[in-house]
């Protein structure tokens, strides 16, 4: 891989309170690629993304984003620099309308620039959201809410989009739609994507590179098609 990297995580250790979850995670996310992190429940996938985003404070290690050390920055500072996260469970604003949710996605730019161009791009990507722009976010279906969560994350014009199990709880057809959307974002929007998933087959199909995380450590990594060939090994690691 010769593409310059957007994100590099070095020996990241983190956890909650007294409980250590990550024991030295190393990741590289090259520009305009999809990197997937697979792992069983409790392996530390969500903690990895939350630490990169600054929602959980990293204990040790380094997070380098676009060549700058951003390890200890706060979430809002990271968003302003171009990191964006679609969190597990989506964390939408249920009482606000679809459009208000999207505009909040551009919060760091509000007042300085007009976010309507980005809003149009997101509406083109998800025409459903445009139809439902005045509807309250909490009243939509799971699939629509996931689209909204992705749309909201795109509104900050990120250089790196991170997604935490976007396929969780969704019907297979909708999961395929979302994976196709991620491919479009890489190929047409030229975005760099770090995806955390439990859905091995679907995510390896679209990913360029894959990591397997187990008990807070990377236990296997490689180009996605090669990892896919060793599916027996992957399944053994994931315990399924």
């Amino acid at each position: 891989m010769t593409a310059p990297e957007v994100l590099r995580v070095e020996d990241l250790e983190s956890g909650y309170g007294e409980m250590q979850v990550l024991w030295g995670v190393n990741l590289r996310v090259p520009e305009r690629s999809i990197v997937v992190v697979l792992g069983p429940n409790g392996a530390g996938k969500t903690t990895t993304l939350r630490s990169i985003m600054g929602i959980v404070r990293p204990w040790k290690g380094k997070i380098v984003f676009k060549g700058q050390d951003v390890t200890m920055l706060k979430p809002h500072e990271k968003v302003a620099r171009g990191l964006s996260l679609v969190p597990e469970g989506r964390h939408l604003f249920p009482e606000l309308t679809v459009e208000e949710n999207l505009l909040l996605g551009a919060y760091t730019r509000l007042g300085k620039e007009n976010p309507s161009d980005t809003l149009e791009l997101v509406y083109n990507l998800f025409p459903r959201l445009k139809e439902r722009r005045q509807q309250k976010a909490g009243t939509m279906s799971g699939g629509e809410q996931q689209m909204l969560a992705i749309g909201r994350a795109l509104m900050s014009k990120p250089s790196l989009l991170m997604l935490d199990e976007p396929s969780q709880g969704l019907a297979p057809k909708i999961v395929r739609d979302i994976m196709e959307t991620l491919e479009r974002l890489r190929d047409e929007w030229r975005l760099t994507i770090l995806l955390v998933e439990q859905n091995i087959a679907q995510s390896l199909k679209i990913a360029d590179y894959a990591y397997i995380l187990e008990q807070g450590r990377i236990v296997l990594e490689g180009p996605a098609e090669e990892v896919a060939k060793r599916e027996d090994l992957v399944r053994a690691y994931l315990g399924i």
């Binding site: 985003m53 929602i55 979430p75 809002h76 968003v79 302003a80 964006s84 996260l85 679609v86 969190p87 989506r90 964390h91 939408l92 604003f93 249920p94 009482e95 606000l96 208000e100 505009l103 909040l104 996605g105 919060y107 760091t108 509000l110 007042g111 909201r152 994350a153 509104m155 900050s156």
Partner: peptide, 21 residues
């Protein structure tokens, strides 16, 4: 804009964090 951010924090604190509030 401040009010929008206040309402966002009330409804979902983590959601507010990830949008950069």
């Amino acid at each position: 804009r401040l009010g929008l951010a206040i309402r966002a924090v009330v409804q979902d604190r983590e959601g507010a964090m990830v949008v950069g509030i």
